[in-house]
Amino acid sequence: MLVTALFVVRTRDLLAATMLLGAYSLLSAGMFMVLDAVDVAFTEAAVGAGVSTILMLYALVASGRFERTPTRPQWLPLLVVLATGAALVWGTFDLPPVGAPGNPVHQHVAPRYLQQSGAEIGIPNVVTSVLASYRGYDTLGETAVVFTAGLGVWLLIGGLQRRGAAAPVLASAPHANLILRVVSKFLIPVILLFGLYVQFHGELGPGGGFQAGVILASALIVHLQVFGADQTRQIVPESLLRVLAPLGVLLYGGTGVAGLLLGGNYLDYHPLGRTPVGGQHLGILLVELGVALTVSSTMLLLCYLFAARVARR
């Protein structure tokens, strides 16, 4: 990991840097796996090594492959980086030793989550119950961040310019050859199915809205790459995505408001069902659905935007 990180900093070839970043993400996913953080590893592999590499490649096609060589050494950034790094390393001196049983992380709320979540939430995957129920606010914030980032990119590159003008004519001919088309026709349904499995299996095993959203989006991105953006737009029109991305956040927040109206706290799912555990199940299902909607439609929307921009050039 250190070697890939150093090469990413050193190289001027941004394509190589992007590929190395993907490798870096995959390696850190392996590291999380070794640390038994299966959900985090899954997310890192799907988001870090998968979709963000594709988005960065699109950005490279839109901008240019090579970084400009700086004309003079820049001392101020180096100073800032060194000071920040030194402060971070100094901060690690206060951390308790890794894995010691007396650490705050093993004393504070984690034992309660591990012991009580089976009775309170009633789903086997503790990570999902922590993410979607105990720490529902954080996950709502993350979903809103994904949506806001997508909105920002949409506003920055051409979302508004195209309002009056006709949609740009993209390279609509099937530019990929037979082998790619046949193999992706076989793979895309399987990827979609796997995404749905990850979505609805997130209560039982590793998985959940973020990973499922990214996997669903990646199936459509494969379609976009192989068959051209026009064909994908016919399946999933951009206007639909523009509705779905906010709808996910709305669904998440609305689940919270529904709990509020039914007499609980915000993002408290107990009142939603007949029994508290049933309410938790329903709440987590709705919330994860919202996350998946926002994540997948934002990712696909970004790819549409980049593809349109590349086609305009």
Binding site: I179, L180, V183, F186, L187, V190
Partner: peptide, 8 residues
């Protein structure tokens, strides 16, 4: 899946 994706 590897037999499909890797050669492709």
């Amino acid at each position: 899946f590897l037999l499909f994706t890797s050669p492709t």
